[in-house]
Design a protein around this nucleic acid. Sequence first.
DNA 1: ATGAAAGCGCTAACAG
DNA 2: CTGTTAGCGCTTTCAT
Lengths: 341, 341
Amino acid sequence: MNPPRLQDVADRAGVSTATVSRALSGRGHVSSRARAKVQQAAHELGFVVSYHASSLASGRSRNIGVVLPYVDRWYFSTVLEGAAGALMDAGYDLSLYNFEGDRYRETVLTDFLLRKRLDAAVAVSLYLDPTETAQLLAAGIPLVGVGGPLEGVPTISIDDLDVGRRATEHLIGLGHRRIAHIGGVNEHGRYFAMSRGRRAGYEHALAGAGLPVDPAWSLVSDYTFTDAYQRAKNFLADPTSRPTAIFAASDEMAAGAILAARDLGLTVPGDLSVIGVDAHPIGEAFGLTTIDQHARQQGTRAVDRLLEHLAGKNNEPTNEVLPAHFVVRSSTGPATDPANA
Amino acid sequence: MNPPRLQDVADRAGVSTATVSRALSGRGHVSSRARAKVQQAAHELGFVVSYHASSLASGRSRNIGVVLPYVDRWYFSTVLEGAAGALMDAGYDLSLYNFEGDRYRETVLTDFLLRKRLDAAVAVSLYLDPTETAQLLAAGIPLVGVGGPLEGVPTISIDDLDVGRRATEHLIGLGHRRIAHIGGVNEHGRYFAMSRGRRAGYEHALAGAGLPVDPAWSLVSDYTFTDAYQRAKNFLADPTSRPTAIFAASDEMAAGAILAARDLGLTVPGDLSVIGVDAHPIGEAFGLTTIDQHARQQGTRAVDRLLEHLAGKNNEPTNEVLPAHFVVRSSTGPATDPANA
DNA sequence: ATGAAAGCGCTAACAG
DNA sequence: CTGTTAGCGCTTTCAT
């Protein structure tokens, strides 16, 4: 016995398939009497619409793509969780497209995204050149970007420049003068646009306080704990050129720096203050001061925005800036060495 | 101008739609001459098949579901990466279903999975009762499980009992006699079946070495760094009842324990040896000895197995056991306190 | 408010 | 090897 079709429900309820469709989808008017009969019949039969048939006929697929460069990293998986939740709530399916750096970038962009199975897509921290963006939009795939600027596309993000500045100013306010930065780029320098903004904020804050901006104090890592650990360890090894504070562009890197400092016998925040960005759960154990960028919320907000878009409202390609909040813990404290004050 | 349809390609190539379909999908025989013309025409038109139409007509959707309880945790996101890569390679789409603990469990199981848009699904570390499994199979959704036993379903996993035993025996072999364990369960005790196996392996190894098994030395955490950190800190605070070694069921928990030990002024491995499971990248910075469970590979293997299944081979509901490898680093060393030897 | 009927775009017999 | 044709299961005018 095959799965029940719309026709089976119609027969059982004594109405036409058109009425069943209307009753079940909520589009168009159906008498409450008919609706009840239909729902009853559908339930008895265990009917579930075939989404392929439904999509083919209607042109809507209740399926949204989430495209990201990595999934096994905290920021991305957290945004993904947020997006997944919002989509579940809305009854949408989620198709995942993972670039894995650049490994599947071309394939995803040219093969997968164009298969007409998506109503829309959210692009997380993705760099797309204008041609690529245009191609997607031409294929009828409305886009919302998260965490990175995307030309001509509505976008959700935090103000990375401001975050970088606030973090740095927090350290300056504690009396620090020798402040290093750990930022990140990936192998191709393509993703992680946020790094640029945060670094710029760091430099602005230094300049604003009349402090020198030394490129040698701006480390480049890859956003991982271990890489930041190693770089910080090297950097902090020389006592003569040691900073009293570090602003890291992510909590994982910040935590790595704290571990490195401890391995070198330094105390935090006694010898070194460290501040990160993210509110990554690991930060708690390190007592890490951070700026919460509400990553999960970025995912849910992106989906909600996309849904508004699909509903025909809010189509402006504007950048929506979400707030980020300070979380002061114990990894930052007053600068103590008078030589550095 | 609407997106080109199969008919447009057929017209342009001067053949029938059937030939176009065959030429493009590779099913059935087509003269190389016709194939060339079709490919040419399809390329010129920028034709991409409508997967809804294709799926409706063929019953196959080239779409596989990945169902998991969390996505923002290392093990799950890593398995997901592996599965996503394997699916890309095979030209399949990936639909993501995230339970978020139990929040969407019912919804996913009853609403989403039954919509007939999936050819199959991989269930990562999921507990399903026999009724649920049967329901999915009845809906025609072949299943492969990863990292957890699933009745009557083919499964990919490591031998958690063996892993627990080997980890513990490593410590015993180093002369440790006072060995604690940090395992994990979630709020509902439903997922993380692996914890049970690893704990059992720990107990077996102790018993096998004639050591007492004290339930009080078997901590229960939630698989996160910070929770393990706090529990380890409490546990290690009392010098009189302190173990000389800890086996943690995951690297994040192991790293948390190391941080806790250091915060208490203990050295690793001098005062305390710690071993984990996972080969989580964070372990490197901590010099963590671990057992690599090749999480990514579990994901790719699950997909490959599913694909074999769909191709009609290898349908036995057997449990396939993947190897796990020791990675010895610096967090484990010989027991030094003679009182404990 | 409801039914009849024409597709949505593609695949898979079936014939030839 | 290729064309014809009948659907796949649902949605949506268009009537009534």
